[in-house]
């Protein structure tokens, strides 16, 4: 299978921002939607800080090569995690960044949405759900997989005490891009 038969997504930030969890939830939503997924992760040997990313390759059949080679979408929650992403972005790729934490987003190649992801999470009561805000924004803009599948993955796979907050953050992310799209 060639690259063009897959959709490739990177969720990147720093250790502790929950990109691994966000990747797992998105992967579960993709499987529920009938796709095959390969999700890989790269992180530094520290539990907080250092770049951390979760990459997804999504296919309709099976995934032959499980690592990303050309990104269709990038969620970037911290400048430190930009790394090799600019070189991997496809023409017209969707890029969602945290407006405050990514002062220098990748230029030109993609459709850029610099959004107040962490600020919105803070308004909801916990900056740590910026990952869910970002995921909601990314899926809202991509229109794929179905938002309901992502909601269901959050419901089934996150601890009960964070469920409502996570869902609220996910929906807040989608709301951010609904506004963003109408303003554009």
């Amino acid at each position: 299978m060639s690259d063009t038969a897959t959709r490739q997504i990177r969720l990147a930030g720093t250790g502790g921002q929950g990109l691994g969890l966000a990747g797992r939830l998105l992967a579960d939503a993709c499987v529920a939607a009938g796709h095959a997924v390969a999700q890989s992760q790269t992180y530094e040997p520290t539990s907080r800080g250092g770049s951390s990313r979760s990459d997804l390759v999504v296919a309709d059949g099976t995934v032959d090569y499980p690592l990303v080679t050309a990104l269709d979408a990038l969620l970037l929650l911290d400048q430190a995690a930009l790394e090799d992403a600019p070189a991997l972005l496809r023409e017209g790729a969707l890029v969602v960044t945290d407006a405050a934490l990514v002062p220098h987003p990748p230029a030109a190649q993609g459709e850029l949405h610099a959004l107040p992801l962490t600020a919105r999470a803070r308004e909801l009561g916990n900056p740590r759900v910026a990952n869910m805000v970002g995921l909601g924004a990314l899926v809202g803009l991509a229109g794929w997989p179905a938002f309901e599948q992502v909601e269901r993955a959050v419901e089934t796979s996150t601890p009960a005490r964070f469920r409502e907050l996570n869902l609220a953050a996910l929906r807040a992310g989608r709301a951010l891009v609904a506004t963003d799209a109408s303003a554009a």
Binding site: R24, A27, V31, H35, A36, V37, A38, Q39, S40, Q41, V63, P66, L67
Partner: peptide
């Protein structure tokens, strides 16, 4: 490490 941490359907 890649295979150890890889999640596949």
């Amino acid at each position: 490490e890649v295979l150890g941490h890889l999640v596949e359907t």
